[in-house]
Computed example of a mutant assay.
Amino acid sequence: MSYFDFDALTIEDRKMHEVKQLGLQLAATQASLLVVGEAGVGKTSLARYIYAKSRSPRLYVLDCKNSGGFDFNRVDGGTLLIEDLDCASLALQGELMKLVERTDATRPRFISTSRRDIRALVKQEQFRQDLFYKLAVVHLEMPRLEDRATDFGKIVNFILEVSQIMHGKNGMSLSAEAYGRLNSWNWPGNIRELENVVERAVVLAKSSHIEADAIQFEAVNEDLALDFAPGMSLSEVEKRLILQTLELTAQNRTRAAQMLGISIRTLRNKLNEYRMEGVL
């Protein structure tokens, strides 16, 4: 998330409240944390929030999707925020292991984020088991926006206020129809998508009262890039769709089955087939 403030809201959702409280409890410790959740739920914002509540003197940020310019030698204590740990190459994992094995004051505290279940990557031998145990001492799982019904209205109002400040506006409000349109959407992109939709509505609104026609959704989910090609068999298309949906949901089978429109039993049977084929 780009501008979410965990102190600005009274969180009522039980799971999110527990995640926040555990994060605050661990902020002053040196325990390595792994924040897991779907794209757009606010993993990095929570990680930065925990860092801000700690006594750590400095923050280093490593983006595993674009790590080429990161200088491991300059890390000197503090906190290392590792974004998208599940995307770390084996070579990058090796560099991280060297940091983990430091025994002096230059060893940082580690807070990582991941969309996928690292344990599944360990089983597939795509992630080092020893590094996983070092970086994931405590797991924090962020809930989806769709599951935070009790917080939805407050989140919308907060984003609306921030969007107005960003664009030099004030006194804006949502009509009942506009809010109903927001509330009826399933938010596959989570809070990041909500930020985008509300900010666009603030920009497009013809008056201070935002009507339903200013609430516009993207038809395509950018996080699910399906590499289909003409000539592929239906079974191969089905396999790729299932596996990529699981990746999108951080290996949450219940959520994946819902998105695919199949039963959890059918999904389980398909995964057993792929395991027998050696795909998993």
Rank of each mutant, 00 (worst) to 15 (best):
A105E: 14
G37W: 09
V202K: 05
I215K: 02
E141Y: 10
Y179S: 01
V122E: 13
L26K: 06
L81T: 04
T29C: 09
Q164M: 15
D151Q: 04
S32G: 12
S54D: 09
S175C: 12
N272H: 05
Q25D: 08
R200S: 10
S45R: 03
D104Q: 04
S207Y: 03
E211T: 15
Q244I: 10
R128T: 04
M172P: 03
L22R: 14
L92G: 10
V41S: 14
L224T: 05
I11G: 03
Q216T: 11
A212R: 13
I111K: 08
K123A: 15
I165V: 09
Q164G: 01
L243S: 01
V122N: 12
M259H: 09
Q251C: 01
R107L: 00
R253K: 14
M259N: 08
D5K: 11
L267W: 05
G180M: 02
Q164I: 09
D104N: 14
E277T: 05
L85K: 06
R128M: 03
K206V: 08
F217M: 11
M276G: 01
D76Y: 07
N269C: 02
L131R: 09
E277N: 10
W185Q: 06
F132C: 14
F6S: 06
A212F: 04
L182I: 04
W185P: 02
R255S: 04
A176M: 08
A27M: 09
S175K: 11
A136E: 07
E146M: 07
L280R: 11
A120Q: 12
F228R: 10
I118D: 07
V197D: 01
D7W: 13
R268N: 11
R107P: 12
G180F: 06
V202L: 00
K53V: 05
E238D: 11
V197Q: 01
S163G: 11
L135S: 09
A47E: 08
S114I: 12
L204S: 02
